[in-house]
Design a protein around this nucleic acid. Structure first.
Length: 944
RNA sequence: GCCGAUGUGGCGAAAUGGCAGACGCAACGGACUUAAAAUCCGUUGGGCUUAACGGCCCGUGCCGGUUCGAGUCCGGCCAUCGGCACCA
């Protein structure tokens, strides 16, 4: 770090203001009913995704979003809003626990230290958080309510009639435990041996743990689940009106994965198995228990179903398999079970499977079709069974090819419709050979109505698009959508199926085998679970010396024998909640963090919710953001909250890359430490640079010279107000005077007010800063310089002459040694004050200091810059009497002329046609048309 | 494979369908300085042309379209990044 002189004394003034903010808490927001609360003001809740306080401290990614929200928060305060802008800590988490395992240091200690470091660092950037609302998810005063919310979920069920969560008491069935929103199930889970815990689907990436990258295997275990699937439809529907990036909405929709289709029952054919011939159950064609139900999104292809496939784990498999096929089926099941998720995915390309020996009846065609098992059919989706329609499904096609199963076309492509290659294209010689492998009856008896080649589309495999039903007596000739409807109606009529919807979303695996998390407020008695009384909350984790996973899947809490024993007959639940639990509702607690009697006070919740602006990284698109919406809905349904969605407007900040354009990492040695930057350039420069880099949502590389540029800008602001005297002290510059701005200056001022206001609302901070740079350039450049006139007139070409100050009684700038340049003009105090307010959200320290300095000499304005009203611009100052417009001939600029703003179209046209340069270019041509856009341009269209 | 985002000077980037490159960085030239740093002023997309003022042509990933006019709208490609990935 260089020891060169600071361009302005940020190293003195930034700590000064930070100390003042610490002392006076000017950013504290009062709740309704509290002293200092002003009900006349509108509210604004602006929230950051709170950090996990890791050991490595803040990196430059954190402050990007935090600076954006801080600017908005400070801006909204100046605009007269009651602003809620809190910060807290997502403090439960694996790293602290793993550190504890390595060192024996209790996670609580590590976490406390990390929080302290994060807090110091955040304060060093000058964020205007209301620190009185600070919360930590690992604080018993907080997690007692996390546990309380879990109990609300536990004590409720999803009523399919009302489509709402309701207290379990309203459930009329005989087994409440089967419908609770929190339930225990023996499910195949993602078990990570290395971490000694199970993980949610969302925490597994490519068959490895998201944290640490350790292998994850499937293994059945008894786990707590939250019934998020019950809310699938609402999670999709209520997403629609939110002001979120379309991409994130789409990500959530895809994650939830809604598919509309039908369930179809296939009777198992009784005569398939010689061994069971004569078994009375196998003779009828709809014996209960011997139907296989499948889910399909394409019921219109039912006639094309030439085989069936069950998931290997499907319990029906054992009942169906013939004696002959038993050894092969069992071997295959073993083989599949041994595969990890990774392997199962990796081998996706090669289809494998085994014939069960059994047959089913295609309810439409009446044909006997073979039943197979294959691992490309998943037990967890739909019914764990499919009908194989190789002609119209890629996977089924591959499978049919591998095992030489029949392929029957039942949907004909319609020429000229979606996805149909023009004739002649997509047909290669290999098509003939492809046809050869198709069994004889592949296309049925009916000639292919599409004529020409008896195609599967091109030679690529299955045709999965929509078309016209063929070879399907009930629906022949119908387009796909209609065919779906008609066949579904027919299925319902015959009692063979029904329309239904399936979701990819699975229930949320909610328990973890960890120490450092919220214990479940649950006890076990006689093998059944019970909730503990609310009065027993918070349920604090027991003290432990050994945090290591037990390795058996039994949670570390099992080691605390005393704690585990709840009573003679009951023991405590040993699992803890996942890290997401605390972050599912922290935005609610911020509204009323000190409330000891409720998770959030009703009035506070009604006043502050929902979150007006939520800024954070995309990585939470389907995790935190889905879970939080889920909890919000449950709590809303149960009457605890006033809104059904928590986050009105969501914005994702883009990642900041290293100077080399690569992701910042120790490996590349390109990590930028915010505190190093602040030490050298100051917090204001750091903040402004992060915002000036480019659009908030975009990924962008760091640039140290870019920081320098922004730092220079702030120094120019400083020197606009201050100058250094002979003793080397900064004093108010004598050029700052109580004078009126020139007309040109006034225009820049108002253009800047307009642009900065609009840009902050739109979160376009980079262009807001650019406009303030223009402002400063206009006020620092000598009159008449190109830079001056460019800035002042808004004329990029800088050609218009502009210039002499129009200020009555402006005194010549006092001579000031070397700094006094000829033509230096005075700087109006009022203009400076406007700039300082506009810049305040971006560079709060510098502007506070300069505001104070100005106030000492020109005491007309209130003392504190944070009490200022946001300036309003006046349109009348933005318009000019004259405007320079380009004259075009056939769309090419040939000249520019300055015309009165009020010039009529006819006048403009006349001016254009009379123009010498235009004349030159239309010479010998006939003018066909003259396009006149008032105040913009004139285009003369001419040709031969 | 599917879905989404992005593609503009040497670099980060601006541009309600209306003068492409605002603002900043870097580079170069100049002023100040014994000198350097800092600061200030200026030049800076490419090519051609002019003694000079100036003028002309090309240019927003590629190909095509709509329009008086396209970075912007439409169709088709290509590349990079991100997400999902046997979900029937």
């Amino acid at each position: 770090m260089s020891e060169r002189r600071k361009p302005y004394p940020f190293d003195l003034l930034e700590p000064k203001w930070q100390a003042l903010w610490e002392e006076l808490s000017p950013f504290h927001a009062s709740n309704p009913g509290e002293p200092g609360f002003d009900p006349a003001r509108p509210k604004y809740y602006v929230l950051d995704m709170f950090p996990y306080p890791s050991g490595s401290g803040l990196h430059v990614g954190h402050p990007e979003g935090y600076t954006a929200t801080d600017i908005v928060a400070r801006y909204k305060r100046l605009r007269g809003f009651n602003v809620l802008h809190p910060m807290g800590w997502d403090a439960f988490g694996l790293p602290a626990e793993q550190y504890a395992i390595r060192t024996g240091q209790h996670p609580e200690v590590t976490t406390r230290e990390n929080i302290a470091r994060f807090k110091t660092q955040l304060k060093r950037i000058g964020f205007s958080y209301d620190w009185q609302r600070e919360i930590s998810t690992a604080d018993p005063a907080y997690f007692r309510w996390t546990q309380w919310i879990f109990l609300q979920i536990y004590h409720s069920w999803f009523n399919p009639e009302t489509k709402r969560a309701e207290p379990i008491a309203t459930y009329r069935g005989d087994d409440p435990d089967s419908v609770r929103l929190a339930y225990v199930a023996e499910v195949p889970v993602n078990w990570c041996p290395e971490l000694g815990t199970v993980l949610a689907n969302e925490e597994v990436v490519d068959g490895k743990s998201e944290v640490g990258g350790f292998p994850v295997v499937r293994r059945p275990m008894r786990q707590w689940m939250l019934r998020i699937t019950a809310f699938a439809e609402r999670l999709i529907d209520e997403l629609e009106p939110l002001d979120w990036p379309e991409g994130i909405k789409l990500l959530q929709r895809n994650w939830i994965g809604k598919s509309e289709g039908a369930e179809v029952r296939f009777p198992v054919a009784g005569v398939a198995d010689p061994g069971s011939a004569g078994d009375p159950r196998m003779t009828g064609d709809s014996v209960p228990g011997y139907n296989i139900t499948v889910f399909t999104t394409r019921p219109d292809t039912l006639y094309g179903a030439t085989y069936m496939v069950l998931a290997p784990e499907n319990p029906l498999v054992d009942r169906l398999t013939t004696a002959e096929q038993h050894p092969a089926v069992d071997a295959y099941k073993m083989q599949v079970a041994a595969k990890s998720d990774l392997e199962r995915t990796d081998l996706a390309k090669d289809k494998s499977g085994v014939f069960t020996g059994a047959y089913a009846i295609n309810p439409a065609s009446g044909e006997r079709i073979p039943i197979w098992i294959a691992d490309y059919v998943l037990m967890g989706y739909g019914t764990g069974a499919i009908m194989g329609v190789p002609a119209h499904d890629e996977r089924d096609f591959e499978f049919a090819q591998t095992f030489d199963l029949r392929i029957r076309e039942v949907v004909a492509q319609v020429p000229g419709r979606v996805g149909v290659p023009p004739a002649g294209e997509g047909v290669s010689p290999s098509q003939t050979s492809r046809s050869c492998i198709l069994p004889k009856d592949c296309f049925g008896e009916t000639p292919n109505p599409a004529g020409e080649t008896p195609t599967l589309p091109g030679n690529l495999g299955a045709f999965t698009g929509e078309g016209i039903a063929v070879n399907s007596p009930l629906i022949d000739g119908l387009p796909t959508a209609e065919a779906k409807r008609k066949i579904t109606d027919w299925l319902v009529e015959k009692g063979l199926g029904r329309a239904t919807i399936n979701y990819k979303l699975r229930d949320w695996l909610f328990s973890r085998q960890r120490y450092w998390g919220e214990p479940f407020p649950i006890i076990w008695r006689d093998g059944k679970h019970e909730a503990v009384a609310e009065s027993e909350l918070p349920l604090v984790p027991p003290p432990l010396d050994d945090f290591k996973p037990t390795g058996t899947g039994e949670p570390p809490l099992a080691r605390a024998k005393e704690w585990v024993r709840y009573s003679e007959a009951a023991t405590r639940e040993l699992n803890t909640m996942p890290q997401w639990a605390g972050s599912c509702w922290y935005y609610l607690r911020f509204c009323d963090p000190g409330n000891a009697g409720r998770f959030v006070g009703e009035e506070a919740e009604r006043y502050w919710m929902n979150v007006d602006l939520y800024v954070g990284g995309t990585e939470h698109a389907v995790l935190h953001l889905l879970y939080a919406r889920f909890w919000q809905k449950v709590l809303f349904d149960l009457g605890h909250l006033s809104t059904t969605e928590p986050f009105h407007r969501l914005v994702n900040q883009g990642m900041i890359l290293g100077e080399d354009g690569r992701k910042m990492s120790k490996r590349w040695g390109n990590v930028i430490d915010p505190l190093d930057v602040i030490a050298e350039y100051g917090a204001d420069a750091f903040r402004c640079y992060e915002m000036f880099m480019g659009p908030l949502e975009q990924m962008k590389p760091w640039s140290m010279t870019g920081v320098e540029g922004v730092s220079r800008f702030l120094a120019r602001v400083w020197r606009l107000v201050m100058e250094e005297n002979q003793a080397g002290e900064w004093v108010l510059s004598p050029t700052v005077q109580e004078v009126e701005p020139t007309r040109a200056q006034r225009k820049v001022i108002h253009a800047t007010i307009k642009k900065v206001s609009e840009d902050i609302e739109a979160l376009s901070f980079n262009t807001a800063i650019a406009q303030m740079m223009i402002f400063v350039n206009a006020f620092t450049s000598p009159p008449g310089s190109a830079r001056d006139s460019r800035a002042v007139s808004g004329d990029p070409a800088g050609k218009s002459l502009r210039g002499s100050p129009e200020v009555a009684g402006e005194s010549p700038a006092p001579a000031r040694e070397s700094r006094a340049l000829p033509g230096t003009r005075s700087v109006p105090v009022a203009s400076l004050r406007t700039l300082l307010v506009l810049l305040n959200p971006f560079a709060p320290h510098l502007t506070s200091e300069l505001w104070e300095t100005l106030g000492a000499k020109f005491p007309s304005a209130p003392a504190g810059i944070t009490e200022q009203p946001w300036p309003e611009y006046r349109e009348e100052y933005l318009v000019e009497d004259e405007v320079e417009i380009p004259l075009q001939v056939n769309g090419k600029v040939r000249d520019r002329v300055t015309v009165p703003i009020a010039a009529t179209n006819a006048e403009l046209e006349a001016i254009a046609l009379a123009n010498e340069r235009v004349q030159e270019f239309i010479a010998g041509l006939t003018v066909r048309k003259v396009v006149v856009i008032p105040k913009k341009l004139v285009n003369v269209v001419a040709n031969q």
